[in-house]
């Protein structure tokens, strides 16, 4: 491969070996790249360790299920975050019910019907841009068009979260649909199926695992959002079983308000709620990974 080379003294020189300072520069850069990774590990490890250490103190069955959130001044051990856990599950669940089907349908439009048309390209581009819209803006938006007319409710919070999730689901489903080989579609067309039928019975199932895992990641992101809920669900101290009327609370909101308090009890509850929230998002992320890993189709 390498022609034999020799230096001026006639000794063989391996041309693959760079000179000293070039090699050191290369090594330094490699070390810096590793350092970058380590730097990022430090806060991550720090936060997870603190979360587990402080949160574990707070977590108990009572903490997770007791439906009365005590006043800030009350120390740990009284009441619990049950109201917030239920709120988070309900509000995020309903938001997912809204955003996921709409997002998948939107991606279907982009990939199956839109083609290269200007509308499709505009929608595709703007949904990328929309993923960068701050979540607080979504909250203000729903406040203006819904809360001002119909009051605070868990459903309003779901609307705001759904606005947040929609572009994310569209983008990730779009990527998954693009991966479905055309031969599948064409085979179905050859059998005389209509486009709708092809999409629903062939393309979607083929992309399903990717769509599901993308959707789960969007749900995890929505579950952790606080800002959109500030303007839409207000807060409560007791579980509000009715998602559609009356203020509600959720884990991120409770963490936010308890974090601002100087009270020891409030802070402890914040850590417990934070650990619960991270556990929920973590579980969603792991399930998403499992779905991808188990069902990844090898692209031809």
């Amino acid at each position: 491969m390498m022609a034999a080379a020799s230096n001026s003294l006639g000794q063989p020189v391996d041309l693959r070996e760079p000179s000293g300072w070039r090699r050191s520069k290369n090594q330094i850069m490699t070390i810096l790249m590793w350092l970058a990774f380590v730097i990022v590990l430090i806060p991550l490890a720090f936060v997870l360790v603190t979360l587990v250490a402080k949160g574990a103190d707070a977590i108990s069955l009572q903490f997770l299920t007791n439906s009365t959130i005590p006043p800030n001044v009350v120390p740990l051990g009284v009441g619990g975050m049950g109201a917030a856990v239920v709120g988070t599950l309900e509000i995020t669940g309903f938001a997912s019910l809204l955003a996921i089907p709409l997002g998948v349908l939107g991606a279907v439009y982009l990939n199956e019907y839109g083609g290269n048309g200007i509308l499709a390209r505009l929608i595709s581009f703007m949904s990328s841009v929309m993923t960068g819209v701050p979540s607080i803006v979504m909250g203000l938006f729903i406040y203006i068009i819904w809360v001002l007319h119909f009051g605070y409710s868990g459903m309003a919070g779901s609307f705001a979260l759904a606005c947040l999730m929609l572009p994310i689901v569209i983008r990730s489903s779009y990527e998954m649909l693009r991966l479905v080989p055309d031969s599948l579609r064409q085979g179905s067309y050859a059998l005389g199926a209509t486009k709708a039928r092809v999409t629903v019975t062939v393309v979607l199932p083929a992309a399903l695992s990717g769509i599901v895992s993308g959707a789960l990641l969007a749900v995890a992101r929505a579950a952790g959002e606080t800002a959109p809920l500030i303007f839409t669900i207000l807060t409560v101290e007791q579980t509000n079983p009715n998602l559609f009327s009356g203020p509600d609370t959720s884990l991120p909101l409770q963490i936010f308000s308890n974090a601002q308090s100087a009270y020891v009890g409030a802070n402890a509850r914040a850590w417990g709620a934070a650990l619960t929230l991270v556990a929920i998002t973590f579980i969603l992320m792991i399930v998403a990974r499992i779905v991808t890993a188990l069902f990844t189709r090898n692209t031809r």
């Binding site: 049950g82 239920v86 599950l89 309903f94 579980t239 079983p241």
Partner: peptide, 14 residues
Amino acid sequence: ALAACSSSSSSSSA
């Protein structure tokens, strides 16, 4: 979500 809806009314104790 559905499970949460149905369990919420029974979880309040105190």
